[in-house]
């Protein structure tokens, strides 16, 4: 069954064609994404922050859901690869005028776009687009519903690798709203594929999906226990809507039980790193002193995001170019 999704993401030679979800990809591929990103980290420090890899290619950022940071880093990554970039905020554009998702895609294809970067509120939206897009087009998932956010997970893995080296000895705790989080799902897959020793999820039961253990994690409902001896803590953003859905009583109680403070962080290893995919709610899921404190690598995540997105975009477009050049279809 996973094979089906593999087929969609990989070309005949097993190279990245679309980047839709981490699930089903190999350790080798994830490592090569990080290695490629490594080679791009220097670009930003140069005087001319550009490489000509995607010159002449057109990339469309299709954001059916707003996201300042993800959209900006994708745009910057594409520009540093010398691609032409269209950023379309569809939350206020075509589909709200009754145009279907497929019509929007068809129109952009007619403008000879080579790659779609898609953010959408429905799980599986980028699978749908990848399945229905013209054969020369690559699709990068920039977040679909609760399902997957693979570039975020890869920049998180890259941040962990740069700080910790090997994954084999690491204990990682992901804290917060796992149920609604595409980031958490992708991180869990990536950590397991890369061989992390233990992946924990920490949340009240209302914010954990059914059978979450089957994703390869152990579940904790107590933050202190969940943090014990971990090397990496990943905090997730808590959306205010959760209070209305009877999932939580109040922000106050949530912070008391699951908010990360300096005190609580002492349960983790002394050299623990603290991550957050952003945007941060200071004082809701994490205390300001932790965000700005010595364990925090939150800003590193943002800058590595550009290198990872450059890596994924250049790999996907090049696999497509080779496949087309070789006459494969």
């Amino acid at each position: 069954m996973t094979v089906h999704r593999n087929d969609l993401q990989l070309d005949a030679e097993g190279r990245l064609r679309h980047f839709l979800s981490i699930d089903g990809l190999s350790k080798t591929l994830l490592t090569s994404i990080m290695d490629t990103a490594e080679s791009f980290t220097g670009v930003a420090e140069r005087n001319v922050k550009k490489v000509p890899l995607l010159r002449g290619k057109t990339i469309a950022n299709l954001f059916f859901e707003n996201s300042t940071r993800t959209q900006t880093t994708f745009e910057l990554a594409a520009k540093r690869l010398s691609a032409d970039v269209l950023s379309i905020n569809i939350a206020t554009s075509a589909t709200s005028k009754g145009e279907s998702l497929l019509d929007t895609i068809r129109n952009l294809e007619a403008m000879h776009v080579d790659m779609f970067v898609v953010r959408h509120a429905a799980s599986g939206a980028s699978h749908f687009i990848a399945r229905n897009a013209a054969p020369h087009v690559s699709v990068i998932n920039a977040g679909d519903g609760r399902h997957s956010h693979p570039t975020q997970a890869m920049l998180d893995m890259f941040t962990i690798r740069r700080n910790k080296g090997d994954f084999g000895d690491l204990k990682v705790a992901i804290v917060g709203d796992i149920l609604h989080s595409r980031v958490a799902r992708s991180q869990i897959h990536a950590l397991n594929i890369l061989g992390a020793r233990e992946v924990r999820v920490v949340a009240p039961r209302t914010l954990l999906p059914t059978k979450v253990e089957q994703l390869g994690v152990s579940a904790f409902h107590n933050l202190d226990q969940g943090l014990r001896d971990v090397d990496v803590v990943i905090m997730l953003r808590l959306q205010k809507e959760r209070m209305r859905g009877a999932l939580l009583p109040s922000e106050h109680e949530y912070f008391n039980c699951f908010g990360l403070t300096e005190d609580r962080l002492r349960h983790a290893k002394p050299d623990v790193i603290v991550m957050h995919p952003g945007p941060i709610n200071r004082g809701v899921e994490i205390d300001s002193r932790v965000v700005d404190g010595p364990h925090s690598v939150i800003l590193q995540q943002v800058s590595y995001g550009i290198a990872i997105r450059m890596a994924v975009m250049s790999m996907a477009i090049h696999s497509e170019a080779k496949a087309a050049g070789g006459g494969a279809g």
Binding site: S123, H147, R185, T210, K211, V212, Q214
Partner: peptide, 15 residues
């Protein structure tokens, strides 16, 4: 169906 597959795919579940 609210179960392992919906959890994996991030689809809202019907228990």
């Amino acid at each position: 169906h609210e179960g392992a597959v919906a959890t994996l795919l991030g689809l809202p579940g019907v228990p």
